[in-house]
């Protein structure tokens, strides 16, 4: 098959390979984003759709009307800044917790042998066979005042009054870590499983202890997996809406909820679009970080 493989790499035909991903990007990222960006430059009005048109073509005159007031509006009220910061904080803390829990899990699976490994992998993936929404509802049943945890604690006499867990930030963290843990474990596992055992053997021969072997060989070599996993958790959590809505209390401020409020309560689609656009810009930093490491990973394999 070698000649065929070579023909693919002929200069001039390269674009055939490049087109699908770009088409994908155009269709599922750039086009929706362009629509959102367009709405963010319009003004809110009572109509269907509830925003003004960007341009008008009357009597051979094209009038373009771009409003930046929506972006300026975000600066006038500290709510938006606070919500971005609070979302980033919650995402960062959840990512860290996921990493602390997920690294040993991924490491354990990568070290396991044969059928045991498949079984463990299966256990990580299995919960996602049930709808995400139903699993969050199950957590409501576990965490509520007369839920499983409190019933057990009170029956054992550990506490007299139920511990309030539902509708707190703690519940939000539990929900997020539980939901997103597999997204960290899987890429990290696929990285760790490739770790060359001979490197560790050589290190042992040279007198390195287990801690030193981990810190100087395993951890640096798995950095790509760590970054990939962390970003897969961090990026979607910043815009998370369902988990804080269902498990969180009213004091949990997240940008997803603010966006929902702008869209549905204020019916201000332009401001909602501006909030979404700014969120994307904020996320560009971790997204590009993610892509750089992914790219480096792939180059390293060649």
């Amino acid at each position: 098959m070698k000649p065929a493989g070579r023909r693919w790499r002929l200069p001039g035909q390269h674009w055939l390979l490049v087109i699908p991903p770009y088409l994908w990007l155009l269709l599922f990222f750039l086009a929706p984003f362009a629509i959102v960006f367009k709405i963010s430059l319009a003004e809110s009005t009572i109509a269907q759709p509830p925003y003004t048109a960007l341009y008008e073509y009357v009597n051979d005159v094209l009038t373009l009307r771009l409003s930046f007031s929506n972006y300026l509006f975000l600066l006038t009220d500290s709510l938006y800044f606070d919500a971005y910061v609070s979302s980033l904080r919650i995402a960062a803390i959840s990512t860290l917790i996921c990493l602390v829990i997920g690294y040993p899990i991924a490491y354990g699976i990568a070290r396991a042998q044969g059928p045991m490994q498949s079984l463990l992998l299966m256990l990580v993936v299995l919960p996602s066979w049930t709808s995400f929404l139903i699993r969050i509802y199950a957590w409501m049943g576990i965490l509520r005042n007369n839920g499983i945890i409190n019933t057990v604690l009170m029956a054992l006499g550990v506490v007299d009054e139920p511990v309030r867990m539902m509708n707190t930030e703690l519940a939000v963290y539990i929900g997020i870590v539980y939901t997103y843990l597999p997204f960290l474990v899987l890429p990290l596992y696929s990285n760790l499983v490739k770790l060359d055992n001979r490197l560790l053997e050589a290190a042992t021969d040279l007198g390195a202890g287990p801690v030193s072997r981990f810190l100087r060989i395993t951890l640096p070599l798995s950095m790509g997996g760590v970054i990939a996993g962390c970003m897969l958790v961090f990026i979607p959590v910043v815009g998370e809406f369902v988990i804080p809505e269902l498990l969180g209390g009213s004091e949990t401020l997240m940008i997803g909820k603010v966006l929902w409020g702008e869209f549905f309560n204020n019916r201000d689609w332009p401001v909602a679009s501006a909030v979404a656009t700014v969120m994307l810009v904020v996320l560009l930093i971790p997204i590009s970080l993610f892509h750089r490491y992914q790219f480096r990973e792939m180059e390293g394999e060649d």
Binding site: V258, R267, D268
Partner: peptide, 18 residues
């Protein structure tokens, strides 16, 4: 009016988030 809705929803966010 949209102005009243916005003022009300904004105040509501303050109330809920304490």
């Amino acid at each position: 009016s949209p102005a009243v809705d916005r003022a009300m929803n904004r105040a509501w966010t303050d109330i809920k988030t304490g």
